[in-house]
Design a protein around this nucleic acid. Sequence first.
DNA 1: GAAGCATGTCAACACTGTTGACATATGTGG
DNA 2: CCACATATGTCAACAGTGTTGACATGCTTC
Lengths: 212, 212
Amino acid sequence: MTTAEPRSVKIVRHDASVPKAMKQSDEADVVELKGAAKTRQAISDAARELFAHEEYANASVRNIASKAGADPALVIRYFGSKEQLFLETVQFEGFFELAMAGPLEGLGERIVSALLSDQRDAGFSAYRAMMRASGSEVIRRRLLEAIHEMFVEPLAPRLKGPDAALRARLVAAQLAGLIDGIAILEDAELAATDRKRLSEVYGAALQGLIQP
Amino acid sequence: MTTAEPRSVKIVRHDASVPKAMKQSDEADVVELKGAAKTRQAISDAARELFAHEEYANASVRNIASKAGADPALVIRYFGSKEQLFLETVQFEGFFELAMAGPLEGLGERIVSALLSDQRDAGFSAYRAMMRASGSEVIRRRLLEAIHEMFVEPLAPRLKGPDAALRARLVAAQLAGLIDGIAILEDAELAATDRKRLSEVYGAALQGLIQP
DNA sequence: GAAGCATGTCAACACTGTTGACATATGTGG
DNA sequence: CCACATATGTCAACAGTGTTGACATGCTTC
């Protein structure tokens, strides 16, 4: 993002070097990591936390390193670049499978409800972080992929009627708009609104795309 | 955004100093600006252009200054900070008044159509820039205000039925989701979709919020 | 012409991501 | 057990960033 490179071209110099000491101990579930593997893990944890709470630009490699008790140079050695560190640590987990699973009837409301109810903080902060960092080509693409994988691909084949693929994509767009308001712009009114009513109202509009 | 301050607190040190030479010549429409006013204008123009095409973080004060043929220190002197320069230059113009004006019937489709058809590039890039820079508290708030002023306030009083204010806010959210896809994430499929069909389909979902 | 202020220039500060050279630990083959 | 190789960690430096304060120049007004 910064230095010594021509502004628009991005060259990845060396790949993220996974420490050799890193092997899955087949035994314990909670592995006591040693040496480099432990350091890498510490960096990863620190990065996840900082990227969730700070802006991309403000979560500095030096901050991450210090929080992990490691040297900034190690961060780059292990992950290649700050951008790759971001990509490896900030991710969506399986997110809407549950809500997605049910019948088409009432799906709109169920999705919105799932979005609001649970502790979706992890997903929210991932979306927020990627959205704000979407000036980076790779991150932008990654977010776009995630949207397609999570919504469009599972949904499109199930929709009946014309423009199924388009409508599936627009379902995702409509949801994105809601997350924008709640998680990125932190609209106080939106946050204060009764979840159930919000699910009903916005879910109904979603349903209009699902079953026109 | 950067230096010498404790990370979270933001102190504005000196106000943007408007050059004294700046007076509206009451005569000509296109005023030939002189001295400082001209410089300020040049900086403003350069900033507008760079913020539209580059990310906030990548549009450096030094770049802006050099594009304007001025010294970086002058940029700060005139605008107070990079953040304030952003706020003063990146703005929405009157945007949806036209589409908003008509009857409630078919309003959803008209709004989407207005969003897509014209050259809305200026508005798109303003939204994109502010969204990506929304890690800054002031910028986040400004964007939120703009959304309320442009959509919620004009729309809410016109909506009939329950939850009018909420529904107006959700209309804005739904639109934001579409702009996300087109202008920020640059979804190729979305961009390739026939505008008319898109207006119809998404507009119908919007209409479900406008007239449930 | 001199004082005063507007405007412009410059070098420096503390920060950023990233790199390359070095030091140390760790493990392996003889 | 030593020697060697490699994995891991440390450090200083580079070019870039936003911002500041000290200085130089210009223009106005007494």
